[in-house]
Structures are given as structure tokens and as C-alpha cells.
Design a binder for these strands. Structure first.
Lengths: 107, 107
DNA sequence: TTCATTAGATTACTTTATGTAACCAAGTTT
DNA sequence: AAACTTGGTTACATAAAGTAATCTAATGAA
């Protein structure tokens, strides 16, 4: 029984998206350029994990990190073209969640 | 600075999809009803975690479990309507992955 | 000069998730 | 009875994520 193997590109995408916080960080940056602490307080992620995720996402060319010499230094994060290209994925999830999940108040 | 809070429905969907293996299990079941061992060998997941995931997905009404009294017993897993409604999400990820990821052989 | 402040990040440590491999149940064949 | 089968579970090891304290480098207050 030769199982059709799962496409490696698809697997890479899935493994990226199934890493905790990744999708929420990208979703948050769809709103525009943000600083470390803005992302942190918006999605409620710990500094340690946000730092890890942003490094991963930078390495994968999804997020761009820009250092602005001010005092204290300002670091701005934004989506690259590849990052922005993920918008349809997030929108599809968003719309599915509206159709199929109840809000707490409806329970 | 009142941060707009992230929608709870969306957060639920994201937390479901960012659980390792969940998306791949659903993707696999889009091909049709399958048995435990078929899913297992198709996506390379351990029995323990597959068992956990299927229980979660059943509880969330995404997967249906059917016991067929044969010998040894046959257990068939399939998607519910809610499960099938996730297809657009998987297809969007699939298409994004084709556009933005290199296959190993292209590196 | 010394101290406190700041944003971004790291470190040490705890808790949770996942992986591995051995084992179990119940019916069947040998 | 012993061995085989599928769909699990269990015990244990490793990896990932959470928490809280700490670091750095520039600056301004005391």
C-alpha cells in the first residue's frame, strides 16, 4: 500500500503554522509595524517566546526587524512580502472561526 | 492604550490549529474515511499522540469515530460537517506553501 | 559620579507537550 | 494454550513553553 506522501512544502508550512504563537504574531503584524512590547501585550505572549518566534520568523523571511537608534533604542517589527502573503490563510481561519465557534457568552 | 483584544472565536481556532498534528490529521481525513493505522502511517505520528488528537477532535465535533464489529474490531475515523468545513483553510495553506516554499531539491 | 529608568532580550528554573518503546484487551487462527 | 491482530495505554525520556529575575546600553536625575 504505497501511501501518497505528504508534500514537503505543505509540511513545512504546516509545521510553521502549528508552532504556538506564530499565527497570532503574523496576524498582529497584519495591523502594521509594531514594537516588541506592543506585540507582547496585544497577544499575551511571554517575552522569551516572543523573542524566539521573532527570530524564527526573521530567519524565514516572514518578519523584518528594524533598529531605530533612539534612546532607549526602538526596534520595529513588520511583515515582509512573504509575511503579507500569509494574510489569506489568517482570513480563512478567521472566517471559519466565526462560522463554527461559539463565543463564551453563547454557551 | 486600549489594545483591541483578539476575538475569542479566532483564538480558539488558532489554538486548535497550532496544536501539533491537528491540521495534518484533518488534511489526511479530507481524503476520506480512514482507520487508525492508516492515518498513523500516512502522516508519521506516534500512536499515543494520534490517540490524543483524535479524542480532542472528536470532542470538538470535527472527527467522527465509528466502531465496526469485525475481528479484530475496525475503527473508522471520518470528518464531520464541521471537519469538512476546514477544507478551505487547508487548501489556502497548501496553495501558499506552493508559492513560497522551496522544495529540498531546489536548495 | 552614582543611581534609577527604559526597551529589548537572555538566563535559570518549572511545568506541559511530545516522542519512544513496551505492554494490554479481545477475538481468531494455529 | 500460544501467537496474531488492531487500537489503544502506560512508563519513562526529551523538547517546548511559561515565569520571574537579570542584563545591557544610553540617559537623565540626585
Amino acid at each position: 500500500m504505497a501511501q501518497p506522501t505528504i508534500c514537503p512544502k505543505f509540511e513545512k508550512a504546516i509545521s510553521l503554522l502549528s508552532q504556538r504563537w506564530t499565527a497570532l504574531v503574523v496576524y498582529q503584524l497584519l495591523l502594521g509595524t509594531q514594537r516588541f512590547s506592543e506585540i507582547q501585550s496585544a497577544i499575551g505572549i511571554s517575552g522569551k517566546v516572543l523573542s524566539d518566534r521573532l527570530k524564527d520568523l526573521e530567519k524565514q523571511d516572514i518578519v523584518k526587524r528594524e533598529v531605530i537608534p533612539d534612546t532607549p533604542v526602538i526596534i520595529e517589527y513588520s511583515l515582509t512580502e512573504k509575511g503579507r502573503s500569509m494574510e489569506p490563510i489568517l482570513r480563512t481561519i478567521e472566517s471559519w472561526s466565526q462560522d463554527w465557534f461559539q463565543s463564551e457568552s453563547e454557551i
